[in-house]
């Protein structure tokens, strides 16, 4: 599989590729991505990562991820901005913080994924279901509305939550980026 061309015949080879490997071209990656993440809140320790994969061992759901937590961190360090910010994984993160708790180099893994989510949102790369949640929040002022009122009845509670006021929340949310995201996403 290893082919080394003698010095005389190089550059722009014609004909079939020498191997079937289609490598990621490092010169096309965003080398500033690492610095960008490092400059964000909780991102300073990023470069301390020595790729031990403790984060992936700690993660309760990484088995269903295409990119494991340690791979996402590697990708950030290598500058694979596009892949990281458009990955599903950063949104699937349960934010249980187990990776961050266990990291031997004090890399704030979960917080870095939050940073990634913020960057992705700025670029408008938010999955539709997350936009849906934002919409729900904006419209109802709360995420979990009371639906099964028979439960309240069974417990002897009044039908509506007493003192619940969602109007102020709705007003506040209108002025936040959540509103911009939802509007921009529509």
């Amino acid at each position: 599989m290893v082919v080394v061309y003698p010095m005389t015949e190089m550059d722009e080879q014609s004909g079939p590729p020498i191997t079937l490997i289609d490598p990621i071209d490092m010169s096309k990656l965003d080398t500033k991505f690492r610095e960008q993440i490092k400059s964000m809140p909780n991102g300073e320790e990023l470069s301390a990562c020595f790729a031990c994969s403790t984060c992936t061992a700690a993660c309760p759901i990484a088995n269903i991820w295409q990119y494991k937590p340690h791979q996402l961190i590697r990708m950030i360090i290598l500058g694979m901005k596009e892949e990281v910010l458009s990955s599903n994984e950063i949104w699937l993160c349960l934010t249980c913080f187990q990776c961050q708790e266990r990291c031997p180099q004090k890399v704030r893994v979960t917080d870095i994924f939050f940073d990634c989510k913020n960057l992705a949102a700025e670029e408008g790369k938010v999955p539709p279901n997350i936009i849906g949640l934002g919409k729900e929040l904006l419209e109802k002022g709360q995420l979990y509305t009371v639906t099964a009122d028979w439960e309240r009845e069974d417990l002897g509670l009044e039908p509506a939550v007493p003192g619940l006021s969602v109007d102020s929340m709705k007003n506040t949310l209108k002025k936040t980026r959540t509103n911009k995201l939802v509007e921009g996403g529509e």
Binding site: V2, M10, S53, Q71
Partner: peptide, 22 residues
Amino acid sequence: SLIQPREDGSLDIVVYDSLLNK
């Protein structure tokens, strides 16, 4: 995995990253 010299004296090197599997 692969080293390819280029005309300007630089080297194109393909590396298998076993952590990324890429």
